[in-house]
Simulated scan of single mutants.
Amino acid sequence: MRAHLGIVDACRITGRSRATHHRRLRPRPPRERTPRPAPVTALSAAERQAVLELMNTGEYAELPPAQIYARELDEGRYHCSERTMYRNP
């Protein structure tokens, strides 16, 4: 009987790939995160506030953004995309 298992045998027994084993032995140093620039198409603070006020009016307060978006388009008003309405906090 062998006293020590080799890496290949140990990885086979545990079901772990050798690449994962070696990667965990020497992890990469953490990268410094650089702040991402705001997208060019992002709403300004005033536009965000206007959309929030619209969504919180008595007429729209209980409706999901998809219905608000559709009703505003039916009236000929476009404020932002439906997806942006969902993202607005």
Rank of each mutant, 00 (worst) to 15 (best):
A45I: 08
C80A: 14
D9G: 06
N56H: 13
E72W: 07
T34P: 01
I68Q: 05
N88M: 05
M1V: 11
S44N: 14
A3R: 14
L52Y: 01
R31T: 13
G6E: 05
P65L: 13
Y69E: 12
L25V: 01
E82G: 04
G6W: 01
G58N: 10
H22D: 02
L43I: 03
Q67Y: 02
S44K: 14
P65E: 13
A61K: 07
Y69S: 15
L5I: 13
D9I: 08
T57Y: 01
R12V: 06
I68D: 08
Y86H: 15
L63V: 00
T14H: 04
P29N: 01
G76P: 02
Y69N: 12
Q67I: 11
M55F: 04
L52H: 05
L5Y: 11
H4T: 07
H4A: 11
C11L: 02
L54N: 01
A38N: 03
P35R: 14
A45T: 08
R87E: 15
L5M: 13
N56D: 10
G6F: 04
R16P: 00
M55N: 11
A66R: 15
T84I: 00
R48V: 15
L25T: 00
V40D: 13
R23Q: 14
A46F: 06
H21A: 06
R23P: 02
H21V: 05
T84V: 02
I13A: 08
R71K: 12
T41N: 08
H4F: 10
P64H: 12
E62P: 00
A38S: 03
R26V: 07
R2S: 03
N88Y: 03
R2K: 09
E47R: 09
P30E: 12
Y78H: 12
R71N: 15
Q67M: 11
V8E: 08
M55R: 11
M1P: 14
A10E: 03
A38T: 11
L5C: 11
L43F: 04
R2F: 04
G58I: 01
A10P: 01
E72K: 15
I68A: 10
M1G: 15
R26Y: 05
G6A: 11
G6S: 06
V51C: 13
V8M: 07
R36M: 05
E47W: 08
I68F: 05
T20C: 08
N88D: 00
D9H: 06
A46D: 06
T41C: 06
Y60T: 00
P65Q: 13
L54T: 09
H22T: 02
H4M: 06
L5D: 10
P35C: 04
R83A: 13
R2A: 10
H4D: 09
A42Y: 00
C80K: 08
R36G: 03
I7P: 01
E82N: 07
Q49A: 15
P35K: 11
G15R: 06
D74K: 13
R71P: 03
M85T: 10
A19K: 01
A19G: 02
R87S: 09
E82A: 14
T20G: 04
Y60K: 02
R23C: 01
P39L: 11
A38C: 03
G15W: 09
A70L: 15
